[in-house]
Amino acid sequence: MTSTWLSPRAGPAAGSAAPKWRALAPSRFGAIGLAELAPLLVLVGLCVALGLLNPSFFSFRNLVWGVANSAAIPLILAMGATFIILMGSIDLSIEGALSVGTMIVALLCANDSNANNFGWWGPLLALIACTALGLANGLVHVVLRIPSFMATLGVWFVGLGIGTVALGGSEIRVLDRTIRSIAFERVLAFPLAVWIAAAMFFFALFLERKTRFGRYIYAIGGGEDIAALSGVPVKRTRILAFALAGFFNGVAAVLAAAQLGQANTTIANGRLFMTVTAVVVGGTSLSGGWGGIANSLIGVLIVAVLANGMVLLGISPYVHETVQGLMIIAAVALSVRRGRSLIVK
């Protein structure tokens, strides 16, 4: 038994006249293909409709500031959340991690409430702290065998609590110009924040497509017991995924601090819901196994374009939520994998 991969021994029946095993009927391919393309079609449709209703949608300024820049932080958050949701788990600690992260950045760099001026140590420490919170999520979830829903809910409140204690409820302004430049420095016409988000996207895409970690995420989402039987290090992968999500939360926290120039405990309000919405709208299944990073990019863009479009079209704020809700249901309805189960819970 010494053959190598590149010089396979021919199988006993290879090329013989034996009947071939069949794939299922091709109609099923068609169905899957359409469902997978649905989020992209929704995005394209949305953009075309907006462009027709208000041509300034396609103006460079709007695409950069109204869409790309607004999507930067949500995209980074969605990267981490995608890995978690692909495993069939959920990370509720996003807002807690964000408030801890922004707080660390603000307290350590030049700010208006203490004499610190540690420059880039702030963002670095924020990344470490958020990763540690993610790691805590994973450890609590895996080692104590607490469902991720509860484990991350706990860490969410711990994060908010830390923020509350340390900030005492007040807000702190970030005065460090180099840190704030993350949000405002333009490189090739795009703000640095957009480039960072793009880099994070490709990093996540690489992890998903090219590494064993990415494989194992799908394996766990597809069937954890089967994955374990195949020798997939399920626990390690889970813990790693939560730590990774924490890291992405940390990057987002640094960007949020830079963009808004301040830290306070409520800075992250609403982020969790928006992130999960974007991931699901992109076509990633909450039960795990299907979807992915590219889907989430589309999901984030759908949500961002939708928000941008509401303002561009001057839609009354009184109907915003209704319109948003309808669009989300439409996007998910188009992409849901029907027929996989009779009843959807």
Binding site: W65, G66, L260, I267, V311, L312, P317
Partner: peptide
């Protein structure tokens, strides 16, 4: 020119204002 809600939040206000700037310049 326009009235929008941002739920008291700075982040939402940031996004809405960004879009306004392209709409009204």
């Amino acid at each position: 020119l326009d009235f929008q809600t941002a739920d008291w939040q700075s982040q939402k206000a940031f996004d809405v204002t960004s879009s306004w700037l392209t709409r009204f310049g």
